[in-house]
Amino acid sequence: MSIHKSEIKKITTHQLQEMKVRGEKISMLTAYDYSMAGIVDKAGIDVILVGDSASNVMAGHETTLPITLDQMIYHATSVVKAVDRALVVVDIPFGSYQGNSSEALRSAIRIMKEAGAHAIKMEGGEEIKDSVTRILSAGVPVMGHLGLTPQSIFKFGTYTVRAKEEAEAEKLIKDAKLLESYGCFSIVLEKIPASLARKVAKEVAIPIIGIGAGPDVDGQVLVVHDMLGITHEFKPRFLRQYADLNAVISGAVTNYIRDVKASDFPNEKESYK
């Protein structure tokens, strides 16, 4: 028996909080287009992140910095149309919120109104307090992001593990508690020591989603193109590849080319009379 759309229970920020309390892990993946979002949502994912990683995997940029707010809204709009169940969180891109809380609010409202997103995600801690509180005051749910923050790559100068030194670890814990106190509903921790991530997950009440942050957090997120093996060049330690779609797609295209060249496609059954 097929399930009607109206019977599908949508994931909310409140449900994510309940999942943490129950000890139920939260599953999260990226998606940037209608087709992929539909597959991921129907498979039962809890959260879909329309990440600014679209800058890398969809547009071929070296960093996440070049992607614009308009481009993020385009990707988010495509994703939202395909989703019946998952909570859709959208990254506010670099340059659309830093240092200007009025611009941050405008960016967040555009994402919510034009794309129909359910929440936004922002990188940083205490330094983005004004933007976070202003967006939250407008009723827009905010997910934080600490640890390796790709929008600050030129400040860090490297994609290596963050918060290994005591001072940076202490700041990360402080920032996590601050984001919770501002009203963020969840925080992504990227590429930090597992022991530190475990400590943060225990010391804050909101769900902590890890990527390269060990198993002792409240959920996990990966870039869908990485975990499906579409992008072959990127193989960090934290990535588990669940398929090799690069080989599958390449093989299919090779076979298609062969059949076209040999006049085997289309055959009689594939032609109209």
Rank of each mutant, 00 (worst) to 15 (best):
L239Q: 06
R110N: 00
S101Q: 12
P150S: 07
I208S: 08
A117C: 02
D218V: 02
Y32T: 00
A201Y: 01
V161E: 15
S102H: 14
V132G: 04
L172P: 01
A43N: 07
Q220D: 03
R134D: 11
A176L: 10
I187M: 01
V140P: 01
A194S: 11
I209P: 03
K171M: 12
E270Q: 14
S6V: 15
E170P: 05
Y34V: 05
E114A: 10
V90H: 08
I192M: 09
T12S: 15
E123G: 05
D216K: 03
M58F: 00
Q151T: 08
A43V: 13
T77H: 12
P266N: 06
A197P: 00
S96D: 08
M112P: 05
L239I: 09
I187A: 02
L148D: 00
H118K: 10
A82R: 00
S96C: 08
S78I: 10
A138I: 10
M72V: 03
K174Q: 14
F234S: 01
D264W: 12
Q151A: 03
G38C: 04
Y182A: 02
L29A: 03
G95W: 07
G23F: 11
I211N: 02
E165F: 09
V40Q: 06
F94T: 14
Y159R: 14
E123K: 06
E103Q: 15
E165L: 10
E62D: 12
G116C: 00
K235Q: 12
L178M: 13
A108S: 04
T63D: 10
F154L: 15
L146N: 03
V142L: 01
E166C: 04
D70V: 07
Y256N: 06
N267S: 12
R106I: 09
T254M: 13
K129R: 15
I73Q: 02
P150M: 02
V88Y: 02
G219F: 09
K273N: 11
P266I: 10
M19K: 15
A169F: 04
Q241K: 09
I173S: 02
G44I: 12
M143V: 08
K202Q: 15
I67R: 00
L148M: 05
T64I: 07
S6Q: 14
L146V: 00
H145I: 02
K202M: 13
D226Q: 03
Q17E: 15
K42F: 14
T12L: 06
S186G: 05
E168W: 03
G229V: 09
A59V: 11
A54N: 08
E7C: 14
V90P: 03
G229R: 01
V40T: 09
Q220L: 08
D91S: 09
L146I: 00
Y74M: 10
K171H: 04
S107L: 03
G210T: 08
N56I: 15
H75E: 07
K235M: 11
P193Q: 09
V132Y: 03
K42Y: 11
G147Q: 00
A243W: 02
G124R: 07
S186W: 00
I39G: 04
